[in-house]
């Protein structure tokens, strides 16, 4: 067993950002400074499609996660519950929808 530490995504990631990818999709990018942070995030239970979908009130098949090691990043793409700019949308650019992920727990040093 290794010593493990548990931190929150907001303290582990360098960048957590959200934006529209076209008016019907929301895409969230997580960037990490080190390979160990990146790998811990890829393995985190809270950053799997089902867990992310639950946070955003969506079914798991509407969320897609794509690890992108070239930039030590994880991409999360999901259907928007309301199309951008349609009455009822609270965020036309989708630039402030990342906050629901900030307290996801990332366990580092875990033996995988």
């Amino acid at each position: 067993m290794h010593d493990t530490t548990c931190r929150l995504l907001v303290d582990v990631a360098r960048v957590v950002r959200s934006k529209n990818a076209g008016p019907g999709l929301l895409t969230i990018d997580l960037f990490f400074d080190t390979n160990s942070d990146y790998e811990a995030a890829v393995a985190a239970g809270g950053l799997q499609a089902g867990a992310v979908a639950e946070r955003y009130g969506l079914s798991a098949n509407r969320v897609r996660l794509i690890p992108y090691p070239l930039a030590r990043a994880i991409k999360i793409t999901m259907d928007r519950p309301v199309v951008a700019g349609t009455p009822g949308d609270s965020d036309v650019y989708g630039a402030q929808q990342h906050a629901l992920l900030l307290d996801v727990e990332i366990t580092e040093g875990a033996e995988l």
């Binding site: 934006k19 794509i66 990043a73 991409k75």
Partner: peptide, 16 residues
């Protein structure tokens, strides 16, 4: 290299 590779993520549903 990292900044340009990262740009593939920007406003894209799929970086690949």
């Amino acid at each position: 290299p990292t900044s340009v590779a990262a740009h593939a993520l920007y406003e894209q549903g799929d970086p690949y």
